[in-house]
Simulated assay, not measured.
Amino acid sequence: MGEVIRDITISADGCSAGHHQTEERPFGDDGGDGSGGRLHAWMFDTPEENRAEIERLNTAGAFVMGRNMFGPVRGAWDRRWNGRWGDEPPFHAPVFVLAHHAREPRPMAGGTTYHLVTDGIAAALARARAAAGDGDGDVTVLGGATTVNQYLTAGLIDELRLHIVPFTLGTGTRLFEGVPPLGLDQLTSRAASQVTHVTYRVLR
């Protein structure tokens, strides 16, 4: 069976977003313009230096996505509204969105299909595993720290890939907030000019 993986960029003090998040500023007071510019500058300012980490971000067989990362789901599941990711999202696989209201699946250009799941994180993961296949298809959990913390608390993450950016936010949505103590086995660590990439095996 494939693994359940989470890639997440955090500040040096563990925040994946600042306070005052909005639809227009999904990363809130992130030390930049709120669009993730400072937290995620390593992807765009020095892409060649971080090519391996960038290329593996969207290689899973299926994805689970937090509702905030998808964007607000409008009441009528408006055909003009495709979430934050445009008409051709970068995932190219089934994406199971944690949501409050069920909708029909939404196929998108490029092979992404959104499925809204209303019966919890375990159900979303089970559907993603089935979609990824019974072989070695991995599932990636997408979303900010709140979503990841739910999966960590439930013991459902196998591998945690952190991209640690050298500045502090001081306050915000923090990874490991409210999560019981975990054992982590460090698998890899690589420092780049704007970020340090660390991969951990989450010990049961």
Results as ranks from 00 to 15, higher is better:
residue 5 I to Q: 12
residue 8 I to W: 01
residue 9 T to N: 01
residue 9 T to L: 02
residue 9 T to K: 02
residue 9 T to I: 03
residue 10 I to F: 11
residue 10 I to S: 11
residue 16 S to Y: 06
residue 17 A to E: 05
residue 22 T to S: 14
residue 28 G to W: 07
residue 33 D to R: 12
residue 33 D to K: 06
residue 36 G to E: 10
residue 37 G to M: 11
residue 40 H to S: 08
residue 48 E to L: 15
residue 52 A to G: 05
residue 54 I to K: 12
residue 56 R to K: 11
residue 57 L to N: 11
residue 58 N to A: 11
residue 58 N to S: 09
residue 59 T to M: 11
residue 62 A to V: 06
residue 63 F to Y: 15
residue 64 V to H: 09
residue 67 R to W: 02
residue 67 R to C: 01
residue 68 N to W: 12
residue 69 M to H: 07
residue 71 G to P: 03
residue 72 P to V: 04
residue 72 P to M: 02
residue 73 V to R: 08
residue 74 R to D: 03
residue 74 R to T: 04
residue 75 G to A: 11
residue 77 W to D: 14
residue 78 D to Y: 06
residue 81 W to E: 14
residue 81 W to L: 13
residue 81 W to C: 07
residue 82 N to H: 14
residue 83 G to D: 05
residue 83 G to E: 01
residue 85 W to D: 10
residue 85 W to I: 08
residue 85 W to H: 10
residue 86 G to T: 04
residue 87 D to Q: 15
residue 88 E to I: 10
residue 89 P to M: 05
residue 90 P to F: 06
residue 97 V to C: 06
residue 99 A to N: 06
residue 99 A to E: 02
residue 100 H to E: 03
residue 102 A to K: 12
residue 103 R to P: 06
residue 104 E to Y: 01
residue 106 R to D: 10
residue 106 R to H: 08
residue 109 A to M: 13
residue 110 G to I: 07
residue 110 G to H: 13
residue 116 L to T: 03
residue 116 L to M: 10
residue 116 L to F: 14
residue 119 D to I: 09
residue 121 I to N: 07
residue 121 I to C: 06
residue 121 I to M: 01
residue 124 A to F: 06
residue 124 A to P: 02
residue 126 A to M: 08
residue 127 R to Q: 13
residue 128 A to V: 05
residue 129 R to C: 09
residue 130 A to W: 00
residue 131 A to V: 03
residue 131 A to P: 01
residue 137 G to P: 03
residue 139 V to C: 02
residue 142 L to N: 08
residue 142 L to I: 11
residue 149 N to F: 06
residue 151 Y to W: 00
residue 153 T to R: 13
residue 153 T to D: 10
residue 154 A to V: 00
residue 157 I to Y: 01
residue 159 E to P: 01
residue 160 L to A: 08
residue 163 H to E: 14
residue 169 L to T: 08
residue 171 T to G: 14
residue 171 T to H: 14
residue 173 T to D: 15
residue 175 L to A: 09
residue 176 F to L: 13
residue 179 V to E: 01
residue 184 L to I: 03
residue 186 Q to T: 05
residue 190 R to T: 14
residue 191 A to R: 15
residue 198 V to P: 03
residue 199 T to W: 00
residue 199 T to L: 08
